[in-house]
């Protein structure tokens, strides 16, 4: 019953919204003094709450960065956990203001949902997790396998494409949340669990015996994951977009949460613009001039966030790979802040 209620509520929300004004998210957030952020239901490294209800993760850091930029306080966030099926309706109907929830940027989603992707906070690709006992070395050997997936994802579509292209058969076993997907996999309902590779590493540590499962080498798709906002509110779109860029730019400039005060004092032309020593940048976004300073001070730069949540100082130990800065052979690149 709970499963059904959110879409229905959200649809009723859509039906009853009056007036066309879609702008004003910034004003609303300022007025409420809190940012409403839609995140995953519990995925280590990306968005997960501890017993005390504190959220952490790479996606959560996007929420915190936006809150720091807009409200000057990274803690002023109300998190709404959403499964894959609920996420877009929740954003469309205004239940959340921004949606960083390992969501893949695709043409259909960008063009038909009334939503905009603000960038990419993790370059990913779909992979497969199998139990070691099966002795499978490659995804090409999976003909006839039962595959656990989460409903309403690009994963479902890539999977169908991949098996069809390789002339193989499969049985899709579809669950609502990542928790249930993991349980199904553990209970032996399926031979394979498929998802974006980063999430496979995250789900693997949720297994009772993580060492019994391996991630296969194949990556079968491009999954650029990024924060999403409602279409038609360009001011808000810019704020979310540049909050992420500020984190990436900070990493490129070597600004970290630890050294940002010193660096602010030293001041290069580029850091002066980013940190608001030389005025103007914040105002054009409709924010105060220290917007990026607050992000870096309270949340850290992109590299810090990455290492802390999914990288070497986390249990996931994911390599930077595609998510290294463009100067280090990766794809993370922020347009100039000037």
């Amino acid at each position: 019953m709970k499963k059904f209620s959110l879409p229905v509520v959200a649809v009723t929300g859509l039906l009853s919204v009056s007036g066309l004004s879609n702008a004003g998210t910034l004003e609303d957030v300022k007025k409420n003094g809190v940012l409403q952020c839609g995140v995953g239901t519990g995925l280590p490294g990306f968005s997960i709450a501890d017993e005390k209800g504190n959220w952490t993760g790479l996606d959560v850091d996007v929420c915190r960065a936006v809150a720091a930029a807009v409200l000057g306080d990274a803690t002023k966030v109300k998190y709404t956990p959403l499964n894959a099926k609920e996420r877009f309706t929740a954003l469309q109907s205004g239940e959340v203001d921004v949606l960083p929830r390992n969501t893949t940027w695709t043409l259909t989603r960008d063009a038909s949902l009334g939503l905009n992707f603000t960038g990419v906070n993790y370059y990913d690709g779909q992979g497969f997790l199998v139990s070691k006992g099966l002795g499978v070395k490659s995804a090409k050997e999976l003909d006839g396998a039962a595959v656990c997936i989460q409903a309403g994802t690009t994963t479902e579509l890539n999977l169908a494409d991949y098996f069809r292209a390789n002339g193989m058969k499969y049985q899709p076993v579809v669950f609502d949340t990542s928790d249930q997907t993991v349980k199904g996999f553990e209970a032996g309902r399926c031979d394979v669990l498929t998802s974006d590779q980063s999430q496979l590493y995250a789900l693997r540590i949720k297994l009772a015996k993580p060492d019994d499962a391996v991630v296969l080498p194949e990556v079968i798709s491009k999954e650029p994951l990024g924060p999403v906002v409602r279409q038609g509110d360009d001011a808000w779109f810019n704020i979310v977009k540049w909050s992420l860029f500020a984190m990436i730019d900070a990493e490129e400039q070597g600004l970290t949460s630890a050294n940002v005060d010193d660096m602010k004092a030293k001041g290069t032309p580029a850091s002066n613009r980013l940190l608001g020593v030389e005025g103007g940048m914040g105002a054009t976004l409709g924010l105060s001039d220290d917007w990026a300073y607050q992000i870096i001070k309270q949340v850290g730069n992109y590299g810090e966030s990455f290492e802390r949540n999914v990288g070497q100082s986390s249990p996931l130990k994911i390599e930077r790979g595609l998510n290294a800065l463009w100067t280090k052979g990766g794809l993370q690149y922020a347009p100039p802040i000037r």
Binding site: P7, K85, R109, S112, L113, A151, G152, T153, V174, D176
Partner: peptide
């Protein structure tokens, strides 16, 4: 579920 989410 799935169809709703794929089409929006």
């Amino acid at each position: 579920g799935t169809t709703l989410n794929q089409t929006g």
